[in-house]
C-alpha cells in the first residue's frame, strides 16, 4: 500500500512538472498515469489471484507441499463427470429462474407504481431503502427462524388464515423457493431509485402524445414507460444474473446446500470442495469454469443489446 501511495504522489508531481515543461507529451502520459494505480491494483488483487487459481486448478493441489501433482485438465474432466456437479448446475439454473420470477421484477414494479405516487413520494423512497440495509446474513437468520416448522412465525400466521402448515426448508420441493422468497420482501433497495430516476427522466411530451392518441393511464405505463427503461433493466439484469449465479452467503447460511443437496449451487460446491473435501484443485477448476460461464453470458447479453440499439 505504502508503495502505491508514494507512487501516486510521485505520479501527481511528475505529471505536474511534465505538463509544465514538456506540454507536448501530456496526452501520452496523463492517461497512463491516471490509469496506472488502478491497473496495478486490479492486476494484483484480481488477475494475479485468478491466474493463481487457474494454476492451482492444474494440480492435484496439496496445501502442505504446494503445488502437488500436475494433472493438467484432469480436475476439469473430473468435475464435469461428477453427478454432483450437474445437480449443482441444475439447481443454480432453477435458482436463477426462480429469482427472475420472484425477485427481479419487484423493484421495477415498485418504481412503476411509485412514479404514480405524488404525495410523500420522497418518504416512500426512503422507506424502500430500509429493508436493504440489514446485513444479508442477519436477514437470512431471521428468515430461518420464521420458517421453523416447530415454532416459526410463518406457519403460526398462515394457520390463522387457514393455510399450511408448510415444511419450508424441511420440504424438498420448497427449499429453493424458501431461499429466494426473502428477496421479494426485501425489495429492490437502490434499484428502486434507479428505475424511478429512469422513469422520471422520460420526457413529458411522450406521455402527452400518447394521451392524445387515446392511451389510458394503464396502457401508457406499458407502452411508454417500459420500452424507455429497457436499457436500465438490461444493465440491472446483467448484474442480477451474475449475483444470482454466484450467490453464496444466503444459501450457505440458510441450508448449507441441503437438505439432500436440494439447494446445492455451484458457488457452494466451490466452497465445499475446497474447505470440506480439501480438493483445492477441483475447487479452483470450478471457479474458473464459473468465471468463464458468466463472462460469456454477460458478453452475449451486451451483444444482443447492441444489436437492439
Amino acid at each position: 500500500m505504502g508503495n502505491q501511495l508514494e507512487l501516486k504522489q510521485d505520479t501527481v508531481i511528475r505529471e505536474q512538472t511534465q505538463t509544465r515543461t514538456r506540454a507536448t507529451f501530456k496526452i501520452r502520459w496523463t492517461p497512463i498515469l491516471f490509469l496506472l494505480p488502478s491497473l496495478i491494483v486490479f492486476f494484483v488483487f484480481k488477475y494475479y489471484l485468478i491466474f493463481d487459481a487457474i494454476y492451482i486448478s492444474l494440480f492435484n493441489y496439496d496445501i502442505v507441499n504446494p503445488p502437488g501433482n500436475f494433472v493438467g485438465l484432469g480436475n476439469y474432466f473430473e468435475f464435469l463427470k461428477s453427478a454432483t456437479f450437474w445437480v449443482a448446475m441444475k439447481n443454480t439454473l432453477i435458482f436463477f429462474v426462480l429469482s427472475v420470477l420472484i425477485v427481479f421484477w419487484v423493484p421495477i414494479a415498485q418504481a412503476l407504481f411509485l412514479s404514480q405516487v405524488k404525495r410523500w413520494n420522497a418518504f416512500y423512497r426512503v422507506l424502500y431503502q430500509i429493508p436493504g440495509v440489514l446485513p444479508v446474513v442477519a436477514g437470512v437468520l431471521l428468515w430461518k427462524w420464521m420458517y421453523n416448522p416447530d415454532r416459526g412465525l410463518f406457519n403460526y400466521l398462515l394457520a390463522k388464515i387457514g393455510l399450511g402448515p408448510y415444511g419450508w426448508l424441511n420440504d424438498l420441493h420448497m427449499t429453493k423457493l424458501a431461499i429466494v422468497l426473502p428477496g421479494f420482501f426485501t425489495g429492490g433497495g437502490i434499484s428502486v431509485l434507479l428505475y424511478y430516476a429512469a422513469i422520471k427522466s422520460i420526457s413529458a411530451e411522450l406521455f402527452e402524445a400518447a394521451k392524445i392518441d387515446g392511451c389510458g393511464p394503464w396502457r401508457r405505463m406499458v407502452i411508454i414507460i417500459l420500452p424507455n427503461i429497457t436499457f436500465v433493466i438490461l444493465i440491472q439484469f446483467v448484474g442480477f444474473m451474475s449475483g444470482v449465479l454466484l450467490s453464496f452467503d444466503n444459501i450457505f447460511v440458510m441450508t448449507q446446500g441441503g437438505p439432500a443437496d436440494a439447494s446445492l449451487v455451484v458457488a457452494l460446491m466451490i466452497q465445499r470442495t475446497a474447505f470440506v473435501q480439501s480438493r483445492f484443485g477441483i475447487s479452483a477448476a470450478l471457479s474458473f469454469f464459473m468465471f468463464i460461464v458468466i463472462a460469456v453470458l454477460t458478453i452475449v447479453q451486451f451483444r444482443l443489446q447492441k444489436e437492439d440499439d
Binding site: 446474513v137 442477519a138 437470512v140 451474475s242 444470482v244 450467490s247 452467503d249 448449507q256
Partner: peptide, 25 residues
Amino acid sequence: MKKHGGINKPASVLVAATIVAGLLS
C-alpha cells in the same frame, strides 16, 4: 443495484460458524 457483481459479496454474520460445520465433514 442489490446484486451487482460477485466481488464484494454482501457478507454474512453466520457464514463462518456454518463453514466450520462442514469444514472437514
